[in-house]
Simulated scan of single mutants.
Amino acid sequence: MLPATAVALAVLAALLAWPVPALLARARWPRRDPLVALVCWQAIGLAGGLSMVGALLVHGLAPWGHSLPEAAWSLAAGSPAGEPVRGDHWVALTLAGVLASELLGVLVLSGLRTARTRRRHRELLELVVQPSAELPDTRLLEHPAPVAFCIPGARPLLVLSSGMVAELDEDQLAAVVAHERAHLRERHHLLLLPFVAWEAALPVLPAAARAHAAVRELVEMRADDVALASLSGSAPRRTLARAIVAAVGGAGGAGVPSGALAVTGGVAASRVVRLLEPPSPLPVAARWAALTSAELLLLLPTALLLLPAF
């Protein structure tokens, strides 16, 4: 018979692998507060992985203890199992090791691969771009299409094409630069990395692709919000929306290196609608409820793993 703790973790893992991500991806409230929604997505990803591996570990180690710490202590002390060790226990332990190695290994490999790709693109771009005299910390690239992107990392690079400079007016260029700087300042590439790895590690899981797409759109909306807070002028929302439309219409994301964050990222149409028809802010009570739920979601599998089995 499976320990109740293992069953509870398995149920939680199943909920976080499909229905919960599906509901959050279809919800309308995240566009009202992308930052809170990003926190919720991170909690779902972390709690889901912990629950999947934890359910297998708890079942596999059940003969040695009624909780993960107790079983680990018994094994470390060389104590014999208190119950017969069956084949399903060894299978569970093997699967837990394989799954943990897969999730962590893909995360590390994705991070290294992305960093290497960005470094290569940065080195190539530094050979052809020129510093902008009008826009500090910005490089200009001779390219006819309107393109704007940033390459994050230890030496971040913010690039505007000559086509973008020619296409947009001064206020629109300032909006684009503010958007890209928001990506760099808030390190949005680190928020995306776990979901890139999740999708690569579990390609058969539809929720993985849905989560990656949702998080990618949310980081763009968050960058829009941060950019708007720094813009002056009578209609900053319209200014940024026009810049996005110009970039999408002229290039549609073409010419943006892989691993870069571009102003045309995410679903541009929904971002433009959100800028021109801003949703009402998420109420403070709802905001705190969402953040509390995310915290509890992380605490639940942790408590199930550390506390004695029930």
Rank of each mutant, 00 (worst) to 15 (best):
112 L>R: 15
272 V>E: 04
99 L>C: 09
129 V>W: 00
172 Q>R: 13
40 C>W: 09
8 A>G: 09
10 A>R: 08
120 R>G: 00
168 L>I: 05
176 V>W: 04
163 G>H: 12
70 E>S: 14
23 L>W: 14
37 A>S: 08
38 L>A: 04
225 D>Y: 05
129 V>I: 02
200 A>C: 11
200 A>S: 15
295 E>K: 12
142 E>R: 15
290 A>D: 09
97 G>H: 03
23 L>G: 06
159 V>T: 02
102 E>Q: 15
7 V>N: 05
217 E>D: 15
297 L>V: 00
230 S>W: 11
253 G>F: 07
274 R>K: 01
38 L>D: 01
280 S>L: 14
141 L>D: 09
229 A>G: 00
279 P>V: 01
262 A>Q: 00
182 A>F: 03
67 S>A: 13
75 L>W: 10
218 L>T: 04
307 L>G: 02
38 L>R: 05
193 L>M: 14
246 A>Y: 06
172 Q>T: 10
192 L>N: 06
72 A>G: 12
244 I>W: 04
52 M>I: 15
291 L>H: 07
156 P>W: 03
40 C>V: 14
3 P>A: 09
131 P>L: 06
273 V>T: 13
195 F>N: 00
199 E>P: 02
175 A>C: 03
308 P>H: 07
215 V>I: 09
182 A>L: 10
189 H>D: 15
299 L>K: 10
196 V>A: 15
273 V>N: 11
44 I>Q: 10
211 A>N: 08
94 T>R: 11
156 P>C: 02
54 G>M: 07
180 E>W: 02
256 V>T: 07
280 S>Y: 06
181 R>N: 09
203 P>W: 07
20 V>D: 02
55 A>S: 15
175 A>M: 02
299 L>H: 10
220 E>K: 08
202 L>F: 15
30 P>M: 08
46 L>I: 14
288 W>F: 12
203 P>H: 09
33 D>K: 05
90 W>L: 14
168 L>K: 06
46 L>N: 11
47 A>Q: 03
261 L>H: 07
60 G>W: 12
298 L>S: 00
83 E>G: 01
30 P>I: 10
239 T>L: 08
293 S>G: 15
143 H>I: 00
41 W>N: 01
153 G>I: 07
201 A>V: 08
29 W>N: 03
198 W>I: 06
